[in-house]
Design a binder for these strands. Structure first.
Lengths: 194, 194
DNA sequence: AATATTCTTGAATACATATTCAAGAAAGGA
DNA sequence: TCCTTTCTTGAATATGTATTCAAGAATATT
């Protein structure tokens, strides 16, 4: 027996970045071999084909993002303070003007959702689980009596998801803090004010 | 002298729909000749190349959307009622699950903004002018004393733009009225409540 | 050390795609 | 009616791309 030589996580993160910058269609296998350091044969051996590598990269993206969120919200602070920091992070990502800081899920859904049912299903599922994670945070805020008891956590999370989608798109056209921060601030205010 | 035979608007709208469904990269010249009824030579004669046709299609899209908005807001009703209907229209578009009802500007910006400065500039400019049009509507609402005098029309318009971006993305993952309508309703409430 | 197994390499293949161009068709002016 | 001009046609070209595969290299086992 002989083991594969490459570091799968490194390869997937490199592919991830390439797909985020170029999109799926405009990323060539040549781009991917350059970014990952793998030769075509190795890629096809490990991931079947270009789409297989793409899906694996999306799954790695979801893994990374999920871990990041768990770290951000695992502490003894108020859930609202954590939410404020989380929105601050998204503002920062928007300011960075760095495509690798954007959302691979919504980007892929926008590019391929209409043509590829599998990609649509995977991205939608991952975005839903993000929505669920946010729901639980609002649920905790309700238990901590930080928001009214009659609040609908699911709905608040959905509204926040909507706001973040919107914030990220605004950031594409106007990546400046004078625009993004007031939007994020009002979004948080509107969420907790009933 | 001899005049061109084809109807430019029809051609541009056909190309527009094709680009909306497939995206730019995945739309082949063959797709475009089929959709427009033009032969390659005619397309290259009239629009230089694929990108030229794409830009012309985007400009037609902006023209159509601008006219649509002017019609929706040109009446004697309250600006807020008009805004409510406008959001209702966007909810309807989201429910339709029809790619040709989505926003070509944000889709193109997401796909190509990172790679093509010209496309980025054009789409950003058009999205800005949409923002401006909404600003004027809030300005009118202020004059009609429908919203507080100290309201910042620019900011309200920016927040509405953010909300609509978000609403459209939510619609991609959950095109059902039970999800979209409450989001749109809260968005409008949050806008006019200070 | 020898051998079997698995991984790696990268040139070759097969296919798709954007673009060109020269010949043909239609329209207007003399 | 003839001729010039302009538009149309679509096959040909040149380029790019995803994928394959057979030979070579590395590892583990006997």
């Amino acid at each position: 027996m002989r083991h594969a030589e490459f570091d799968k996580q490194k390869v997937l993160r490199a592919a991830m970045c390439t797909f985020m910058v170029n999109g799926y269609a405009k990323t060539s296998m040549q781009d991917l071999t350059k970014a990952t350091g793998l030769h075509p044969g190795s890629i096809y051996c490990a991931f079947d084909n270009k789409k297989g590598l793409f899906i694996a990269a999306i799954e790695q993206y979801q893994l990374d993002r999920t871990q990041q969120m768990q770290q951000l919200f695992t502490n003894e602070r108020s859930a609202l303070d954590n939410l404020r920091d989380y929105l601050g992070l998204i503002v920062q990502e928007g300011l960075s003007c760095d495509a690798t800081q954007s959302c691979l899920l919504t980007k892929s859904l926008s590019e391929m959702g209409e043509q590829d049912d599998q990609i649509k299903q995977i991205t939608c599922e991952f975005l839903q689980s993000w929505h669920q994670a946010l729901s639980q945070i609002f649920e905790r805020a309700k238990q901590q009596q930080l928001i009214p008891q009659q609040s609908d956590s699911q709905f608040l999370a959905q509204y926040l998801v909507m706001g973040i989608y919107g914030l990220r798109t605004v950031a594409t056209t106007q990546p400046c803090i004078e625009v993004l921060q007031p939007l994020a601030d009002k979004l948080l205010r509107d969420l907790i004010s009933g």
